[in-house]
């Protein structure tokens, strides 16, 4: 049986405006199981976000292929939801209309059932009382919660998250991490989570993929064997620190024999 998600020997080359080319990914292969939470860490510019855009179907690989449910990804599909680094809500729509926006944008109309689903999701991310608020009236953390609710509206099987909490302050960031685990527990999804925080990666995921500097290659694929549900106490555990320092070593160790 084919894996749920599979990256098969992916290389990605971008051409720059000046005509030169840039190799973002080189020969990257890995699988993701159904309902698995996989985090990708690596230095800036290592092609982490490119992985996400490949799986979303917004970008085609230069070489290799990405499959979802055993079929090659050739265009965006409804089974994939995206949470961006910035919440990017539409400032002219209130919270409810923002969460329901994917349906309106896709089909041109919104049914009562869609509104009900959106309200449920907003309540689930803890903003039940804020349906009528405009994005400008909400904090960054609240906006990102709505961003998550919006990504869940079409009930995707796969949730792609591109450094979703990096614009938040440290405290909200940790809180949002636990919040995400709670949501993931309530609605199990296959998650590909891009981050540059090692702690965040270890705390949230079942597996951490460590990437090298450009051109991004897969350096290591580490299963995080910590019990769930994870809590603040998980961070104190000895294993947690072992995983973190193992990943840190992998990132800072020079990979290329220059």
């Amino acid at each position: 049986m084919k894996p749920f998600v599979s990256f098969e020997q992916i290389s990605q080359v971008f051409s720059r405006p000046d005509g030169s080319s840039l190799m973002a990914l080189k020969d990257v292969s890995f699988d993701i199981g159904r309902h698995e939470f996989v985090a990708v860490v690596g230095p800036s510019g290592c092609g982490k976000s490119t992985l996400l855009r490949l799986l979303s179907g917004l970008l085609m690989p230069t070489r290799g292929q990405v499959t979802l449910f055993g079929q090659p990804v050739t265009e965006p599909r409804d089974e994939v939801g995206i949470v961006f680094q910035k919440p990017t809500l539409l400032p002219w729509l209130n919270a409810l209309e923002n969460v329901v926006f994917p349906v309106r944008h896709k089909t041109g109309r919104v049914a009562r059932a869609d509104y009900e689903r959106a309200r449920e999701l907003i309540a689930m991310v803890g903003l039940g009382d804020f349906c009528d608020r405009m994005p400008g009236e909400l904090s960054g953390g609240m906006q990102q919660r709505l961003g998550i609710a919006r990504a869940l509206l079409l009930d995707p099987d796969v949730l792609l998250m591109d450094e979703p909490f990096s614009a938040l302050d440290a405290l909200s960031r940790e809180e949002m991490g636990f919040e995400l685990l709670r949501i993931w527990n309530e609605r199990p999804k296959t998650v590909l989570f891009i981050t540059h925080s090692i702690t965040e990666a270890v705390l949230l995921s079942d597996r951490v993929l460590v990437m090298s500097e450009r051109p991004g290659t897969l350096v290591s694929n580490i299963a995080i064997d910590l019990p769930r549900p994870r809590t603040v106490a998980s961070i104190q555990e000895k294993r947690f620190h072992e995983y973190s320092s193992q990943i840190r070593d992998l990132i800072y160790r020079p990979h290329h024999a220059a």
Partner: peptide
Amino acid sequence: TPPELIELSRSLRA
């Protein structure tokens, strides 16, 4: 317009 919103639009194949 933020590029993320255009990507959102494209990801929905609107």
